[in-house]
Design a protein around this nucleic acid. Structure first.
Lengths: 353, 353
DNA sequence: CTGAAAGCGCTTACAG
DNA sequence: CTGAAAGCGCTTACAG
């Protein structure tokens, strides 16, 4: 158990620990002979440097923190995966924190990450302006926001712009004859919670359509809230023709609610979702969704953070989302390719009504 | 940036660093006055101990490593979430590693975790016997296997036993008149890859049914392999009546393949899956699945590992999985409760045919 | 090219 | 109850 240390290696190789350290860090000049002996000793002893000690000394951990809002949401899972891959490619490790959409849990993770002296932080804030996040940014912690962001912080943002796709969605719905469109929003404190509603409202306005308060359900990006909001819609004297869920989990909840009432999509009510997932191809019916370039976002975010850490100038990045039309809004969509490649859809034509 | 250290706190409080350390660690005797001054100084300075330094000194990190086979698999995502929650409750942090079902990636993560001096390791091995894992276990690294395990290692195992549920599934299929049953297996090198086939074969035998080689598809727990295996089944002179996918991702692939041929479930071919997910309620048709007590497994695994680390005797745990009948095998199932609570199903009666 | 020595920020016997 | 000092396992100027 008394794990082998640099001293053991030095002793075995007949050199000083300084020399061992030098060969391990590809540091300048070491005689070929010494290098060889050290390498042999390392191999024979199975020596692995203690990263704790190294980090304490060098003040860098080669570790990035990623705090996501909800691991159980496939969107964030995919984001996390791409972040980890790109980080690994750049020589960093990732430590994840799952906020579960709860600001206190988020802050717990951020504090833990900071205590671990991570080199930088990737955050998709669960709330509108955690003091902790703001303080950390102000204190100089390299940081990048992904997907969601906090206004007023001087932090690069990597995200998707869904406005175009939302407009395409509304055009699609309008063309299918839908006029009463409702949305289940995420928490107003999150950017994606409010932006998606705004984009939706603006697109409706282009068609002379209104978004009454009763047609804005308040959700929290979790399935249960989507179910509740949908039940409320269905209880309205004049229920909407369409429910647009601002994320895939709330769409799941909406589906639960519709099913519980014995109603059918799209016959009784149409459904669309922000964020696309492989299962949407196989749901009954297949669900029309707005797809984000999730993998790209994750990679871009890591690159921006690495830029910031390594002294380059980090860039904010905004990538377009796109509409993927399926059958949940009433139209028979063409057959679709399997899982890995959802069909790129030409959005329904847009023209003022 | 020059982050505040214990010396700053000591200076501000007018005590030695030893005293500061004592109050921070709830160590024995410190005068109330000194304690108060230290606490004030800590608050005023916003001091946070450097965990790197602390860990280097104490030789414990209060951190557990979790290496899962595939984050994109909802089963593992849920497992990871429950592991993190229980760990947090016990005062540990979790560092995740995603193996993506690739042994080299798995080993990369394990090595990284070990280099970070985690206190213990939770592994769901992507292969049958990584030398690295075995060495680490032998070297005394506290370890617990979750879901999958490596035979021959003296490591507690926390997992679900699917044999009963698989038997219930076969009974259900048999009762529906199916006689040609096929399975898409996971990698033979993983325990869950081979066990599920064995359980299936044994259950078939109870009904006098055979499992011919052509009806055993070789998958790797990923969607694409499920698709390929299913295509091969469909190309057989006598295709099976039922395809049982050994995980939910391969079931997704199977669905893709069936759909691509223009066939329908369960009319043309029945489908069942190991591992249940919320979307299975809303797929077309809803999918019959074997559900694991995933959250319980995650929590039990953490407890076992904490026991091992803290000097208690860790217990292996095996929990039963259960069959959830839906409509993908041909029977009209009763309506089901929404998302969070899939209906517990009474399995079809079992009697020798 | 190489080694002795200081120091990263903590904790913890050891004295008092 | 409290402080001075050693030490955890590394890296890195500083000399030579």
């Amino acid at each position: 158990m008394a794990s082998v240390g640099i001293k053991d290696v030095a002793a075995r190789a007949g050199v000083s620990v300084a020399t061992v350290s030098r060969v391990l860090n590809a540091h300048a000049s070491v005689s070929p002979a010494a290098r060889a002996r050290v390498l042999d000793a390392v191999a024979e002893l199975g020596y692995r440097p203690n990263t704790l000690a190294r980090s304490l000394r060098t003040d860098q951990t080669r570790t990035l923190g990623l705090v996501i809002s909800d691991v159980l949401n496939p969107y964030f899972t995919e984001l996390a995966r791409s972040v980890e891959e790109e980080a690994r490619a750049l020589g960093y490790s990732i430590i994840f924190g799952n906020a579960d959409e709860r600001p206190e849990v988020q802050d717990h993770h951020i504090r833990t990450l900071l205590d671990r002296r991570i080199d930088g932080l990737l955050v998709s804030p669960a709330d509108g302006g955690s003091a902790l996040v703001l303080d950390a940014a102000r204190a100089g912690t390299p940081m990048v926001f992904v997907d969601r962001w906090i206004p007023g912080a001087d932090v690069p943002v990597v995200r998707a712009d869904g406005r175009g796709a939302v407009r395409d969605l509304v055009a699609h719905l309008y063309a299918l004859g839908h006029r009463r469109l409702a949305i289940i929003a995420g928490p107003a404190a999150t950017t994606t919670g409010s932006e998606r509603v705004e984009a939706f409202r603006d697109a409706l306005a282009e068609y002379g359509l209104d978004l009454p308060a009763a047609y804005v359900g308040q959700g929290d990006f979790q399935a249960a809230s989507g179910r509740r909001a949908t039940e409320r819609f269905l209880d309205l004297p004049t229920p909407p023709d369409v429910v647009f869920a601002a994320d895939n989990l709330m769409a799941l909840g909406a589906l639960d609610a519709v099913r519980a009432r014995g109603l059918r999509v799209p016959h009784d009510i149409a459904l669309a979702a922000f964020d696309d997932i492989p299962w949407f191809v196989h749901t009954d019916p297949p669900i029309t969704a707005i797809a984000q370039p999730t993998g790209e976002l994750g990679r871009a975010a890591v690159r921006a953070l690495a830029d910031r850490i390594e002294g380059r100038t980090p860039q904010s990045v905004t990538l377009p989302a796109r509409l993927v039309v399926r059958r949940s809004c009433g139209e028979a969509a063409p057959p679709e390719a399997p899982t890995e490649a959802p069909t790129e859809e030409t959005p329904a034509g847009r023209s003022t009504p």
